[in-house]
């Protein structure tokens, strides 16, 4: 069962990190569990190196606005740490929980030396102070170990299931990826899911 109605989830990261797939898989599991799910996303030009967000809203009764109102996120899942902060400042509240990947993807302004990127210590400190609960995991390293950094998105989904914030589990994940992944892909994604579970 979902803990409140609706549950508002934001999956964030940088274009190309697999945000869309993570939101689709998660939403698919929840639709199969009988919920109304609304996902709000943008793709195309907006993803070229920019910040990306998927807004997921899980409800017992109806579809909802594809944009979550400010301050109303219940769960933030971030494939990139500073993006977790960015989303927190706009959509966070003291009850928000955060699951974030530790691995930074530097904005171009940081690469050029014009902008500063906050240290992971400072980021963690903000999470501790301004969220109800947070998990900060190195999903990218685990994904590299599995052979492909892109798998960090599924590792995060696995980790999310282990946090018990949503009614999703390994079986539901397996059923969901069976729908349109080849056997090879299912295997590696399941391994990523399990790796994520192990990180919580």
């Amino acid at each position: 069962m979902i803990k409140k109605n609706p549950v508002n989830i934001i999956i964030t990261g940088v274009g190309g990190q697999g945000n869309v797939l993570a939101s689709r898989v998660l939403a698919g599991m929840l639709v199969s569990a009988g919920y109304f799910v609304t996902i709000g996303e943008t793709f195309g030009m907006s993803q070229r190196g920019g910040s990306v967000m998927s807004h997921l809203r899980i409800s017992r009764q109806s579809v909802l606005s594809p944009q979550i109102p400010g301050g109303r996120a219940d769960i933030i899942i971030a494939l990139e740490p500073v993006e977790a902060l960015r989303v927190l400042t706009k959509y966070g509240n003291p009850q928000t929980v955060i699951l974030a990947n530790e691995r930074e993807v530097y904005p171009i302004g940081v690469i050029t030396g014009e902008l500063n990127y906050p240290s992971s210590q400072i980021i963690k400190e903000k999470f501790d102070k301004y969220s109800a609960k947070n998990w900060f995991i190195d999903a990218t390293s685990a994904a590299v170990k599995l052979g492909n950094p892109i798998l960090s998105n599924i590792i995060m989904v696995g980790a999310l299931s282990a946090t018990k914030q949503l009614p999703i589990d390994r079986r539901a994940f397996q059923r969901e990826i069976k729908k349109d992944m080849t056997a090879d892909k299912q295997k590696i994604n399941l391994a990523a899911f399990d790796a994520g579970v192990g990180m919580i």
């Binding site: 940088v14 274009g15 190309g16 030009m45 907006s46 070229r48 190196g49 920019g50 910040s51 109102p69 400010g70 301050g71 109303r72 500073v82 993006e83 902060l85 960015r86 927190l88 400042t89 706009k90 966070g92 509240n93 003291p94 904005p107 171009i108 302004g109 940081v110 902008l115 500063n116 990127y117 906050p118 400072i122 903000k126 102070k129 301004y130």
Partner: peptide, 26 residues
């Protein structure tokens, strides 16, 4: 007001340390 004033104020302070992420070629 979606959140209490002090929380909103803290968020405004955090915004200042978040680097802008401009679009770029992949």
């Amino acid at each position: 007001k979606p959140v209490a004033d002090d929380y909103a104020h803290a968020m405004q302070e955090i915004e200042k340390i978040i680097p802008l992420r401009q679009q770029t070629f992949c």
